[in-house]
Write a protein that binds this DNA or RNA. Structure first.
Lengths: 148, 148
DNA sequence: GTAGACCTTGCCGCCGACGTCAACGCCAGC
DNA sequence: GCTGGCGTTGACGTCGGCGGCAAGGTCTAC
């Protein structure tokens, strides 16, 4: 099949496929007219790439999986190099998630503190950490007033 | 003080300060020689900016906080606009964290499955997780042979 | 034979937050 | 006066993953 058909089947664009080829990730054979030609296996490789991309993998990180499939293995993660990428990504994910959770806590407590201060119009240094937001629900008409 | 001193005090670079000024976030007064001049309040605004940046806020999102401080409020989040940013960031953080946790689950289960499959078909090490590369390099030499 | 649907290569644009020159001005000390 | 360490503006580079456009080639249908 030609590039447009593959793009349609995979839900991507021809621009993306040319980009993958330029990166050496998904090279195409060429017809006599110079057109790129793909087959069903390429569609499979492409699905593998897109799946990992959806997971947040960088293109380079999908390469071991693609190579693995091309080497004839049943799935892209049937090779040690792919497993290594999995493990590295897991560690990265854990680190990022932990970091984001810490930030979430900080922002959350800052919001709680600031809400109390604003509603009381009092300077810093609140009381303890009992940041319960029962100040007065009918405040200034904010909240999800709908303005986005 | 001049730009270099402020940069040093805030642990950032002169390039960054000039960038903030170009964005209208932290404008500087000018001396007779054209040099930027900053005071202690600017240092405070800068600290606010860097704190939020560390939280992953975009520069534009720090603007309400800076404006709030400049308006004379005790802290950058003493204004409704800042609280709105807090709330939006919290929602974003929750969404991102949830998404990443889902991805983490998926990747984790894929890894577990693939590890079982690999060890079943091509048992490199009949042990558990001894990921030590002392396994005798002359195993089956597939693919790139495990150079890392 | 001509429209038009596909394909080709090539190259610039984009986003965010700066880094990194280049070429020059200002000022203090020796 | 000269060196060196500050400062100034301007402009291009970076990173990833493409989007979009131009100028042309190819194939098919009518």
């Amino acid at each position: 099949m030609r590039i447009g058909e593959l793009a349609r089947k995979a839900g991507t664009t021809t621009r993306t496929l040319r980009y993958y080829e330029a990166r050496g990730l998904l090279p195409a054979r060429r017809g006599e007219n110079g057109y790129r030609r793909y087959d069903e296996e390429d569609l499979r490789l492409l699905h593998q790439i897109r799946l990992l991309q959806d997971f947040g993998f960088e293109l380079e990180e999908t390469r071991p999986f693609v190579d693995c499939l091309r080497a004839g293995h049943p799935s892209g993660d049937s090779c040690p190099a792919s497993l290594e990428v999995y493990r590295r990504k897991l560690a990265e994910l854990d680190a990022v998630i932990e970091r984001l959770q810490q930030v979430r806590e900080q922002v959350g407590s800052q919001l709680a503190r600031a809400e109390v201060e604003v509603s009381a119009e009092t300077p810093p240094v609140p009381r303890c950490e009992l940041t319960e937001v029962q100040v007065d629900a009918s405040e200034r008409g904010e909240g999800d007033g709908g303005d986005d």
